[in-house]
């Protein structure tokens, strides 16, 4: 009987690393599949040309429209979301710093907003569009995605800004600084790495999400020249082009998947680097 618990211990010591490996393996498998499949179709013209003869049927051309579209959309959305979220996070962590109860409620709100799936944001964005009589366009897509990444940016930044020591705020106040000055001159600098990480994570979400732009951004074979034109995005380029029977078009989908994955990996690497590097003022 006494031995049993030691056997149990041994068994679990074996299956725990196995479970971990299985999870790592799934990631490796995903990336391997996307890379091998995508490399076969990736070419110079894929990233420098827009599709010829329609994205659904035409065999020629690339996915430049989707690459540019995705970048425009994600940049626009991140810009709007950052402009809105910086004052909010500073308000939470400078002006309302002592008010823990209230701020826990506010944090709960943003956590819950974070949990709302992007398809619901898409549907909500669609109702806004109908209300204002807008058509599917870059602008509508940007607004929807910015709403959807807002809680992501706020909570990611908040986690860093929360750690600003009270004594640092006091040091600034005791020099006669107002809360406003303290927030924008001291706290922002202290949490700079948090700001950058938040921007990158949000950018990754924005560039990778399909469900929120499905209703709102539309799709187009060309690169948009104004905010009111519909715009192609990488995720939707994958989704739509995967649905055709034409192998060349499917190839464009796989190439898009690879390009998107590369974007995400690069973002992940940069944000790792930043969190390590930019803590120099702490």
């Amino acid at each position: 009987m006494k031995k049993l618990r030691f056997i149990e211990e041994k068994i679990f010591r074996i299956i725990m690393p196995l479970a971990t490996s299985l999870i790592l393996l799934s990631l490796v498998l995903i990336i391997y599949t996307i890379v091998t499949k995508g490399m076969a179709s990736l070419s110079w013209s894929m990233i420098t040309e827009t599709p010829k003869g329609g994205f659904y049927m035409g065999k020629e051309g690339g996915v430049l429209n989707a690459i540019i579209g995705s970048i425009l959309l994600a940049c626009g959305a991140v810009l709007i979301a950052v402009i809105i979220s910086i004052p909010i996070v500073l308000y939470m962590n400078v002006y309302q710093r002592g008010n823990t109860k209230m701020m826990n409620l506010v944090r709960l709100c943003f956590d819950v907003l974070w949990g709302i799936p992007s398809i619901v944001y898409g549907a909500f964005g669609f109702t806004i569009m109908l209300y204002f009589g807008m058509k599917t366009s870059l602008l509508a897509g940007i607004i929807t995605v910015s709403l959807f990444i807002l809680p992501v940016i706020i909570r990611t930044m908040d986690e860093v800004f929360k750690t600003v020591p009270k004594e640092l705020l006091d040091a600034s106040y005791s020099l006669g600084a107002t809360k406003f000055e303290t927030a924008f001159k001291v706290v922002i600098r202290y949490g700079f790495s948090g700001l950058m990480t938040a921007i990158l994570i949000a950018f990754g979400r924005g560039i990778g999400d399909a469900a929120s732009v499905l209703f709102t951004a539309g799709y187009s074979d060309s690169i948009p020249t104004s905010l009111n034109e519909p715009v192609a995005t990488l995720p939707l380029a994958i989704f739509f082009q995967l649905g055709t029977p034409i192998p060349e078009v499917k190839g464009r989908a796989y190439a898009s998947a690879l390009i998107l994955t590369i974007f995400i990996m690069v973002i992940s690497i940069i944000s790792r680097y930043i969190t390590k590097r930019f803590n120099r003022y702490k």
């Binding site: 995903i30 499949k37 995720p235 994958i238 995400i264």
Partner: peptide, 15 residues
């Protein structure tokens, strides 16, 4: 785990 959490839904779909 970080990378896994950043991979977009659509990529999981393709996979």
């Amino acid at each position: 785990i970080d990378v896994l959490s950043g991979i977009p839904s659509i990529i999981f779909g393709v996979w």
